[in-house]
Design a protein around this nucleic acid. Structure first.
Lengths: 340, 340
DNA sequence: CTGAAAGCGCTAACAT
DNA sequence: ATGTTAGCGCTTTCAG
C-alpha cells in the first residue's frame, strides 16, 4: 500500500518549494520549462492526484450535488436519477445520494447533515410524508442559507426555487380525453396517491376532461385508496358498477393489479374496458395486454434538473427562479381502443 | 442569504480565540462553564455547523463511500443500493454513487476520479463490459493505493478484497432440482447474461443438477442469447422441441417474455411447462401466472457489503479479506407445480 | 524563474 | 481557563 503522494513529497524530492511544484503542475508561465517537465513527469510517474478535499476547502466548492429521492425502487425516480447522474457526470459533478424512503424525518436529517459544506446544492423530490404534513422548514432553511435547490416532481408552492415538474394535470386530462374519444363513457379514476401533489393534479385533470365532455362527475367513480385499505376490495366495490368502461390509474402498480382483477372477472380488454396508467415503466409493457401509459419523460426531467442546478452553481450573476413544465406523452398500447 | 458561520466569527463575537470556541463547542473540560454556555448558545442560535470539508482534510477521512453500480434500473441493483444506503446512513456515512451503465470506461473513469481523497472506500459491482474484457487494472490500482474495496455480485478472482456474492451455482442447482422433483424432465436453460460471471455460475448449477439426476445434458436445451439476437426468434427455435417441459431463466425479463410467448403458443402453465427465474423483482409477481423466482436477497447483500466496508474503515488493526456467500431462496408461485 | 507567507476551517499539543 | 502554534493539502499574491 503506497500512500497518496502530495505536493510536499514532490517538493522534497526536487528540493524546491511547494509553491513551485503547484505552479509547475498547473503549467504556470512562471516556471521554467525544464523544471515543469521534470516535475510533471515525476508526478505522472507517481500517480499524483490533487487532493480534492483540500481544493474544496480552498475554493468553497465541492463539485458535488446532493440528490434526495423518495424511493429508488420506483421506476420513475430511478429513471430521473439516471438522468441526473448522466448530466452531472458530463459536467464533472459527483452525486451524494440519499433515499428518504418517503420519511419526513429522514429527508430532514439528511438535508441538515449534508448542509455542512459537503455539497454545492440539492436536487430533491419530496417524501410522501413531507407532502402530507406540509412541513417545509428544512427547505426554507436551505434557501435562507443560500444553498441552491432544485425540486422536481413532488414540489410545493411554499418554496421558491427552481423546479422541474410534469404536466400532470394535462397528462391526465389528455388521457381521459383519449378514453372518451375511443368510446369510453363511464371512466373510473383509481388513485393510491391522493396524498401527493401529483396525485391531486392528475385527479383534477381527469375531472376537467369530464367537464369538457359534458360528462357528469360521479363521485363513486373516483376511487382513492389509502395505504391501509385493501386494493382488491376497493376495486371490487367500484367494479360492481358493470357500466364502467374505462380506468385511469394514477400509477402503474394499481393498473397492473386492476388488469389482473378484471381479467379474472372476464372483462375483454380493451373491448369492454380500457385502461390507461401513469408512469411508463417495464410493468405495463410486460403484462398482457400491454397497458397504454402516460410517459412523464423521467430521464429528461433528471437531466433538466441537473442542468438547472449546475447552471445556477456556475453562474456569477443572479438568475431568476424558473419552473420548467415537462409535457407528458401518451404511449398507446393494447389496453385502449384505436381511434377510428 | 446568510452565509455559513465559522469558528472565527464566533471567536470575533466574543473576543476569544478560535481554539477556545472550538473547545467550548466540543464541551472540553478546559473551558469554563460560563464561556461554554454562552458560546454554545450563540452557535445554536446562529445555526453553526462544523465545516465537514475542513474536518475531512484534518482527519483524512471523509465518511463517504463510493458506490458503483452497473444499472440502477435493474431491480436487483436498486435493492442492493437500498441496503447499502440504509446501513451507511445508520453508521453516519454518505454515499457518492455512480452508474457505470455497464461501460468499462465509465467505471474506470469514475474510480480514478473519486480516488482523490473524496472517498474512504468503494463498493462496486462490475460492469458487463469489464467482465467481458477482463480488465481489472483500475481495481488493482485502488488496492495498491490502499483504498478499501468491497465487491458484490459481479466479482472477479483476479482481485483480492472483501466480497459479497450470491450462491448462484447452488441457486440454479436447487431450482433445477425443484423443477425435476415436480416432474419436469426436459428443462431448457435461458440465458441472456452468459457474459457475466453470475450467468456462467448459474449455468453450471443447472448442469450439475441434471447430472445428479442422470439427465443427459442436451446442448440444444442450453439457450444463450446475445444482446444483438432476437429473443423471440431464439425462443421459438428452442420451443420447436415440444417435449420441453421446464424453463430456467437466468434473469427476470427473459422469463416474463418467455411466459407471454408460451401463453400465446397455448401452453398450459405449469401443467405442460414450468418456469423459474432468477431475481425476485416486481415483474415476475405481477404477471399471470405469477412466476416462481429465486430470490438473491439483494437488500441483505447491500447491507452486508456496507457493513464489511465500514468495519474495515473503522478498524485499527488489519482484517483478513473475506468473501461472504449469500444463499438464495426459492419463492414458489404459480408457474411451477406443487411438490406432491 | 523561484520562494515565502497567508489562508480556506478546524483540531490538538503545547504554552501561559 | 484561555491562547498560541502548527498543520491537514492546496493556491495565490507578493517578494526576491
Amino acid at each position: 500500500m503506497k500512500k497518496r503522494i502530495t505536493l510536499k513529497h514532490i517538493a522534497n524530492e526536487f528540493e524546491v518549494s511547494i509553491a513551485t511544484v503547484s505552479k509547475a503542475l498547473n503549467d504556470s508561465y512562471e516556471i521554467s520549462v525544464k523544471t515543469k517537465e521534470k516535475i510533471q513527469q515525476y508526478a505522472r510517474a507517481h500517480n499524483y492526484k490533487p487532493n480534492s478535499v483540500a481544493l474544496s476547502l480552498l475554493n468553497k466548492k465541492t463539485k458535488t450535488i446532493g440528490v434526495i429521492i423518495p424511493n429508488i425502487m420506483n421506476n420513475f425516480f430511478a429513471k430521473v436519477f439516471v438522468g441526473i447522474e448522466e448530466k452531472a457526470a458530463e459536467k464533472g459533478y459527483s452525486l451524494i445520494s440519499c433515499i428518504s424512503n418517503e420519511s419526513h424525518e429522514k429527508e430532514l436529517k439528511t438535508m441538515e447533515l449534508l448542509k455542512n459544506g459537503t455539497l454545492d446544492g440539492f436536487i430533491i423530490s419530496l417524501a410522501e410524508e413531507t407532502q402530507e404534513k406540509e412541513q417545509y422548514q428544512h427547505l426554507k432553511n436551505a434557501i435562507n442559507e443560500g444553498v441552491p435547490l432544485v425540486m422536481f416532481d413532488r414540489v410545493t408552492d411554499e418554496i421558491t426555487c427552481d423546479k422541474v415538474i410534469v404536466d400532470d394535470f394535462e397528462g391526465a386530462r389528455h388521457a381521459t380525453n383519449h378514453l372518451i374519444k375511443t368510446g369510453c363513457k363511464r371512466i373510473a379514476l383509481i388513485s393510491v396517491i391522493d396524498n401527493l401533489s401529483v396525485g391531486k393534479l392528475r385527479a383534477q385533470g381527469y375531472e376537467q376532461a369530464l367537464i369538457e365532455n359534458n360528462i357528469t362527475i360521479n363521485p363513486k367513480h373516483i376511487v382513492k385508496i389509502g395505504k391501509n385499505e385493501d386494493f382488491e376490495t376497493a376495486m371490487k366495490i367500484v367494479l360492481a358498477d358493470k357500466t364502467i368502461d374505462g380506468l385511469l390509474c394514477l400509477e402503474e402498480s394499481s393498473a397492473v393489479q386492476s388488469l389482473e382483477l378484471v381479467k379474472r372477472m372476464k372483462y375483454q380488454i380493451p373491448e369492454n374496458l380500457s385502461i390507461i396508467c401513469f408512469t411508463n415503466g417495464p410493468l405495463p409493457q410486460y403484462v398482457s395486454p400491454k397497458i397504454t401509459t402516460i410517459s412523464q419523460h423521467a430521464k429528461y426531467i433528471g437531466e433538466t434538473a441537473a442542468t438547472m442546478l449546475i447552471k445556477r452553481l456556475e453562474s456569477t450573476t443572479e438568475i431568476p427562479f424558473e419552473t420548467k413544465v415537462v409535457k407528458t406523452s401518451l404511449i398507446e398500447r393494447e389496453s385502449t381502443k384505436k381511434l377510428a
